[in-house]
Design a protein around this nucleic acid. Structure first.
Lengths: 406, 406
DNA sequence: CGAGGTTCCTTCGCGGTCGAACAAAGTAAG
DNA sequence: CTTACTTTGTTCGACCGCGAAGGAACCTCG
């Protein structure tokens, strides 16, 4: 009887050491007492971990803070010379790159044209090169008032990369991706780790976005569904604060769900009537071209919908409706706290509105009662933010390893 | 930066002590070494807990087992004089009751006619009464060769009850159920606990069935979707071994998903085109009556489909197809290891076949590759088995309390 | 300018789990 | 029958988290 029902509140937590660093870097907590309160952990525990982190050179003790009626706290901060990580969100025809410092603040962001279809080596090499360039003028270029020594070139600590296809996170390989010719079975993580000499995390792009959104949202979220609607459509589920990858790592597939109003367009998966064939950015492009309009990319669609071209807007609305239809089933089944809408199409208000409308109409009231339906709060950077934070946490998880490379 | 992604393998575990008892009672493990292997826990830990449990009188050491090429194991077993629990699975017009001993073995089972519509007091009182009667001729009546002292009336240790509607498991109350007039807000748990004087667990019937199926399945299952297709249609999700209840406890709703071939029949939820209106047992009854056939309950449908009446079988097949259609979206999204089909309709092979066929056709190959689609392995007892095991585990969770009542 | 209260942080002992080493009890093979 | 190997179970030291107690630093009020 291996029965194991959810106990009252186990709340699978990350190691305390890592969470301490996270809170300090986020500025949420600045003293040991703060941390104890925030983490709901014994003061003694915090004390121990913090001394450890200071010894390891991760944290720093900077002066005393304001008294709150008693002894003044000894302020903690992340050592400013900590370095940075590189986060990459790879799309079909371009990659978004970002530098993030260990406090989780986003530095320079850059979008570079990269053809996934050119194969992994070309794409990954470009990412490494552009990434190095991006970090070159010191990571403090954007965060102006950072008290890092100006001009001091900070060290690369890790890389996270999101890919638009199924990823085996254990091996760090790509697995039979639909739109990534030449990538099948390629060991992305090892390839990068070998060249960069730092820890590398590889995951599906939507998973990273989902993590970023889930934990960036100001209110506490237990379960969330994140949809990325761009050229393709993907989604990610976070249940009980844990990313749900499914049995074969293929969870979150909504793009091949049958949708009632589907046409006869065959999908890449071999079926007819998939959501992807009428609601994706690519599908909208195709439909518009059939109408004689000159559009070639999803970006074109977004731009012209932004200009309120009727034909474009209509299709965008319809795409939202179709997505909403599928989401109804998913949301009814999962009953999440929040639905986050990301990707290029989600920057369009008509699109978001249609999805919302469909959900409110098609879901059970008990499900929509407290449901948050919102566009990705971190905007187009959702992907790199999720990726960056993930790898920052990974890097900081082991303070020992942190010091070794200094 | 409260980022908290699923680390390698944290797997929110129940307390070791409780899991030891669970494994021993299930017969999965019978020696300390077995337990250590099964739990993935240090031998020293097992050793400590086991001595504790033996001291507390929960476990017993009985003789030596067969050698596997080395020292012979000292067999462990649950003390046979432990008592029993009462498990109830309440349907719309009947309840299935069962007695289960603390080893998780099912004893006497009985189905009694109970009208949910008569309100909670009447139904629950009937369950208590019939339950007492069921346990009266000693719980060993069915498990013939049990070495419990014959005739020794064993003590009631707990009650678990599954209800066909939304349940707030924290308060033990029913919440705005669709088909349970008079039950809204009724404190089922407290009402029963007060009268029976033992711990009571209340949950949704499908949730209990899902737990039972998930952990009864011979192979290891991480994520599973369980569907109960009877007069109504419900489902439950178990992700990472934890029952997913959703934000408002309404997770698992697939009955109000829109299905493409839906007619104009209004659903109880106020919408048109819900799965429930064409694929539930009630819907099949309605359709058959419209054809002039004399059927009134889902049981009639099952019987006549079993007799291979063409008109009935056709509708059953179609119901399976519609359910399969909705399940495609769910299964694609969740990517479970297994789909368990329970409820009266799932006893019909044509029904199961249609669901299977739809899933294999409509789901992504990566998802169906290793997917198990099977009818509830525990048959019509799935509900009471899940309920029973849940409360057994609850009772055994605290060995101290166990002894106190002896 | 003490006295008492408040806030911050550390020290110390406790409990649970782990890992390694070891003792106990078998089997198998020469 | 002896030796080697396998499996089982316990003992011991270590780590990590908790909680209680207490010392340190600071505020406020008489």
């Amino acid at each position: 009887m291996a029965l194991d029902p959810a106990p009252a509140e186990p709340a699978a937590e990350a190691p305390v050491t890592s969470r301490i660093v996270a809170l300090v870097s986020a500025g949420v907590a600045s003293s040991r007492a703060d941390l104890a309160r925030e983490l709901g952990v014994a003061p003694s525990t915090v004390s121990g971990r913090v001394t450890e982190l200071i010894d390891a050179g991760v944290l720093d003790e900077g002066g005393a803070g304001e008294s709150r009626g008693g002894r003044r706290p000894r302020l903690l901060r992340l050592r400013p010379d900590g370095g940075h990580v590189l986060a990459a969100d790879l799309g079909g025809t371009h990659a978004r790159l970002a530098v993030m410092d260990l406090t989780g603040r986003l530095g320079a962001v850059r979008e570079v044209p990269i053809e996934v279809a050119d194969g992994p080596e070309a794409a990954l090499a470009a990412i490494l090169e552009e990434g190095a360039d991006l970090a070159a003028p010191s990571a403090a270029s954007s965060a102006a008032s950072s008290d890092a020594a100006p001009g001091a070139r900070s060290a690369l600590r890790g890389i996270a990369i999101g890919l638009p296809g199924p990823v085996d996170v254990v091996t760090g390989r790509v697995e039979s991706p639909a739109r990534m010719p030449g990538w099948n079975g390629f060991a992305v993580r090892d390839w990068l780790a070998e060249r960069a000499g730092v820890p590398v995390l590889v995951d599906n792009d939507v998973n990273l976005m989902a993590l970023g959104e889930h934990f960036s949202y100001p209110r506490r979220v237990e379960h969330s569904v994140t949809v990325k609607a761009g050229s393709g459509i993907g989604s990610g589920l976070i249940a009980s604060g844990r990313l749900h990858r499914g049995a074969t790592g293929a969870a979150g597939d909504i793009t091949h769900s049958r949708v009632s109003a589907a046409g006869e367009i065959p999908c890449s998966c071999g079926k007819l009537g998939c959501l992807e064939t009428i609601a994706s950015g690519a599908a909208i492009v195709r439909q518009l071209r059939a109408q004689g309009l000159d559009v070639t990319t999803t970006a074109d669609v977004v731009r012209r919908a932004g200009d309120a071209e009727p034909a474009v807007t209509t299709l965008v609305r319809e795409a939202g409706r179709h997505l909403g239809e599928v989401l109804c089933t998913v949301v009814n089944f999962v009953n999440p706290d929040a639905v986050f809408l990301g990707g290029a199409l989600s920057t369009l208000e008509p699109f978001v509105a249609s999805v919302r409308s469909q959900l409110y109409e098609g879901c059970h009231p008990l499900v929509t009662k407290n449901l948050v339906i919102t566009r990705a709060t971190t905007g187009p950077e959702a992907g790199v933010i999720g990726a960056g934070r993930l790898v920052v946490q990974h890097v900081l998880a082991d303070p020992g390893a942190f010091l070794l490379r200094d």
